[in-house]
């Protein structure tokens, strides 16, 4: 489902891996710069200097922009800063791709979103009340929860987590970790790729394979 063939870009040299159906992998980084380069490659924002990247067996850079967009409809991305649109409220952000692509209304989304929040809140009230706020008024944890719920509503085949557990309180990170693990198993063949800092929190994350990208 995700295949890197001898990909080279800046400090990343000849990176190869193949993440098949149903697999989970974590890539550990000792530098955020290195992670940003890899994230840029995965997002199709930067071209590799050498090598190829495949999603669903298709070369990411062999396609025109609109075909690449069609690929991304099957991929959920949870950026480190949440990747929210600044002039939309949290709830509008959460709903945007599902509303845009599948016509999902707020009423239809309420139940699945409530379930996600229930799993996350665990004694911490108020997540729902924060949905009327603009992204600038949300904490990092709240922004990531919105991004996570937004990706989950699309029921993607591939999920890419960009430093999703980094920089959060231990409990909050654990709750997000549990949720992503549970979500992974909900659809047969789903692939989860975690980009993580090489730290103690990431060490707790269970994955089928681990790639370490350090100096």
């Amino acid at each position: 489902m995700i295949r890197f063939e001898r990909v080279t870009k800046g400090p990343i040299r000849n990176l190869s891996f193949d993440l098949g159906r149903g697999g989970t992998a974590k890539i550990l980084f000792d530098s955020e710069d290195r992670k940003n380069i890899l994230f840029g490659l995965l997002a199709g924002r930067q071209r590799p200097e050498a090598g190829k990247i495949f999603f669903f067996g298709e070369d990411l850079f062999a396609h025109a922009e609109n075909e690449r967009l069609a690929l991304f409809r099957r991929i959920g991305v949870v950026p480190a800063d949440g990747g929210l649109i600044s002039n939309l409220k949290a709830w509008e952000n959460l709903l945007l791709p599902a509303w845009y692509h599948h016509g999902l209304t707020a009423e239809q989304a309420e139940q699945p979103v409530a379930e996600i929040f229930e799993q996350l809140e665990a004694g911490e009230a108020g997540l729902k009340r924060r949905m009327g706020e603009l992204p600038g008024q949300l904490s990092l944890y709240e922004r990531r929860v919105v991004a996570l719920a937004r990706a989950m509503l699309m029921e993607p085949d591939i999920l890419i987590y960009d430093f999703t557990f980094a920089g959060l309180e231990r409990d909050a990170a654990q709750r997000l970790m549990n949720l992503t693990g549970e979500f992974h198993g909900r659809k047969a063949g789903r692939v989860s790729l975690y980009l993580c800092p090489d730290d103690a929190v990431s060490a707790r994350l269970a994955a089928d394979s681990t790639i370490t990208l350090t100096q």
Binding site: A43, L71, F72, R73, P79, G83, I85, H101, M154
Partner: peptide
Amino acid sequence: SELASMKIRGEIDHLRFMGIAPGDY
């Protein structure tokens, strides 16, 4: 200025991650 700040904050790329053509939206 709204579009410029969205571009600088990387929000155009975030729309692409969601499979949304930034020009359309």
